[in-house]
């Protein structure tokens, strides 16, 4: 198989509050022989908030990010669900509206760039499943995670709206019964935990403006995983990770029950199965105890 190459849109969180996600992404890519060309020119995607204020600016900035992936002639890979949604939504709108695309390109021309629509945009989770292949990953597992019950937490912005999301990858995902992350857990040798909250919202986006709603959602998610007898949770989204890992005190208070579980990034889980060391995967950067390694 030809070496897989992608343009990596890290997003902001992997470079700031989840350094372990950046470390484990690079460690896993290295193990799998995937080349990630980092888009160092990229800006923030607006995180599903900027468009509430200024939709056109959000489109222009996201189109600029994609234009850099196009310059490399590579598929853009995201490692944050919200980056994925914002970028894919921009791509969808521009690819289906010539007038809008022309308007955006008029702005990009001011800085010598053009959005063409030639690069695909996909999340690293689906790049691993669709392009690398879970069978091949399975063969490379050196430390099967067979003693663990692992609760998948999908994150809204990778599974909804499903019509848009399913444009970005081959393996079809049912937003009411998603399977990609479960399949990844199984490929790593783990047992998956089925629980009601696995495809629900973590509350991250209203952490500041609606703290009670946010805390209840976080609490319910962790409680659901705990009741499913999970040893730990795993997520493809650093924002879900942040919410579930760092906000357990508020969450426990909000639902009247102590909740806490280790919450790993999917890259950390794959890294563990592939034999990466805890240091390579940045396991010391978690707030919730990661005491099973």
């Amino acid at each position: 198989m030809e070496k897989l190459r992608y343009a990596l849109f890290t997003g902001c969180t992997a470079k700031q509050s989840t350094p372990e996600q950046m470390m484990s992404t690079m460690a896993v890519a290295d193990k799998l022989g995937i080349e990630l060309v980092e888009l160092t020119e990229a800006s923030c995607c607006g995180a599903s908030h900027l468009q509430d204020y200024d939709d056109f600016l959000s489109l222009v900035l996201n189109a600029r990010n994609i234009a850099y992936a196009e310059k490399h002639g590579l598929t853009m890979v995201t490692i944050c669900n919200t980056c994925q949604l914002n970028t894919a939504m921009t791509k969808h709108r521009l690819d289906n509206d010539e007038k809008l695309k022309a308007k955006v390109n008029e702005k990009l021309a001011e800085v010598g760039l053009e959005y063409k629509g030639t690069s695909l945009v996909t999340h690293f989770l689906y790049a691993i499943i669709d392009d690398f292949g879970l069978d091949k990953l399975k063969e490379m597992v050196v430390t099967p995670l067979s003693q663990f019950n692992i609760a998948p937490f999908y994150g809204c912005h990778n599974i909804r709206p499903s019509e848009l999301q399913n444009e970005t990858h081959n393996s079809k995902e049912n937003p009411y019964n998603p399977s990609s992350l479960d399949d990844l857990i199984i490929a790593c040798g783990g047992a998956t935990v089925d629980y009601e909250e696995k495809n629900k919202c973590c509350g991250f986006h209203v952490e500041l403006q609606a703290p009670h709603t946010a805390a209840v959602l976080t609490g319910n998610a962790i409680a659901g995983a705990m009741d499913g007898n999970a040893d730990w949770m795993v997520t493809p989204c650093p924002l879900c990770h942040l919410k579930l890992d760092t906000q357990t005190a508020h969450a426990s208070e909000a639902i009247g029950r102590e909740v806490e579980l280790p919450v790993l990034h999917m890259q950390q889980m794959v890294g563990l199965a592939l034999g990466c060391s805890p240091a390579e995967l940045g396991l010391k950067h978690h707030l919730s105890k990661v005491d099973f390694v």
């Binding site: 809204c156 909804r160 709206p161 499903s162």
Partner: peptide, 9 residues
Amino acid sequence: CVKCFECAE
């Protein structure tokens, strides 16, 4: 709004 897109779905 928590931006979960459940309504769109």
